[in-house]
Design a protein around this nucleic acid. Sequence first.
RNA 1: GGAAGAGUGGCAGAGCUGGUUGAAUGCACCGGUCUUGAAAACCGGCGUGCGUUAACGCGUACCGGGGGUUCGAAUCCCUCCUCUUCCGCCA
Length: 426
Amino acid sequence: MLEISRIRSEKDVIKESLKKRGWNKDKLSILDKIIESDDIRKSIQIANDDLLSQRNQLSKQIGELFKSGKTEEANNAKKKVESLKTDISKNEDDMSSVKKEIEDLLLTVPNVPNALVPEGQDESDNLVSKEWDQDLPQLAEDALPHWELGKKYNILDFELGVKITGAGFPVFRNKGARLQRALINFFLDEAYNQGYEEVAVPLLVNADSAKGTGNLPDKEGQMYHVTKDDLYLIPTAEVPVTNIHRNDLVKEDQLPIKLTGYTPCFRREAGSYGADVKGLNRVHQFDKIEIVQITHPDKSYETLDTMVAYVETLLSKLELPYRILRLCGGDLTFASALTYDFEVYSAAQKKWLEVSSVSNFETYQSNRLKLRFKDSQGKNRLAHTLNGSALALARIIAALLENHQTQDGIVIPEALRKYTGFEILN
RNA sequence: GGAAGAGUGGCAGAGCUGGUUGAAUGCACCGGUCUUGAAAACCGGCGUGCGUUAACGCGUACCGGGGGUUCGAAUCCCUCCUCUUCCGCCA
């Protein structure tokens, strides 16, 4: 969430930027309300700290009076404190309710879009920041979509997933399963070679972690919730990986922190049934390799560019046509200040599929996470957090199958062959 | 799952028969003296949030989390979490 100090000092700029998210005057007044409530909070604290100070002093005196045997004076002082206490407890009640109010308001305010974020309502207004400048693959007349290919080569079984679990839980088998494992290893090795520390993290997280990355309360309905133990299945590795450093105060020279992790991701995708759910296009469980960076505030945009460039290299090595979108204000996720989406062209469906999303959250997450660093002046400051998919598997597999299909089978891209152990999938 | 013990500052480790204890001491770290340089030695500094102040500073809260008792709690009580050991179960 946003820092109140920032709302105070940059209110007008923030308001102007939030208009890109479609915030009107009405909604923008939340910012004024936050400052008002925070003013109230401060005045209560000033009054209450004073009362507490009096209480502490009197208590100290009472101890001394008892020691020197002045019982009567001590008892008088006790009565005085007694009356202070009713005021104190009233203040504390007021304080916690106003704090709660501020917190609730802050949670409704999304991150401030970066200057590069285009205006716009929805995905149709996203800006293509890098177009695919070569010809798109032309497939033969009888080319098949990936779900047909999956059947043909016995590598992908949706019905079986339905039997075992339900819709949206596909089963990969034979060379399909090996292709999946190959991709995981390929992506992890690539990230490792870029200096990311590999982590293997829990797939269930507690509510504190989900709050830290902003998945609670905003996206509660999108996560599977294990109510018996009050844990959530992760929708992305971002949640456990970023939370590694929740409540951390790191030294400046430890930055940037670069982490990568492979996990399955679980998403309920509530309310998204429609044309796009066919095959692997939208599933409840898929594998993803995530890259996360924690950086100095001055470096985060530079870092964002390197992460975007890195994801490009992966797609090039997989020989997939892709384009990069800069998300508009209306399509930008809640916590992000700037996001680039990657889409690969799935030739048989003649459709662009989102396979990666790379974002800079600036201090929006770190403020909730209390993830700080000590700067060279010895001051504690919030770090910036970034993350990106590198990459999301199910759709990558869809694109690989469709784009690389030939009469003889699916040709595995050169870079992947040492991982699959086969050059052609048939 | 059952029983017992424990959770204190970056780490180690006192305090825990309630009252100058935000917290001894050691290590680590930073600054200084000394030294040709380094080490050692010595001197000084060394937690976080909030509030207040132009600033020095001051106030307040925090000794696993939450709640309670008390004039006053790291110290007593309740509850939850975690760790260790023993038993049970098990990949």
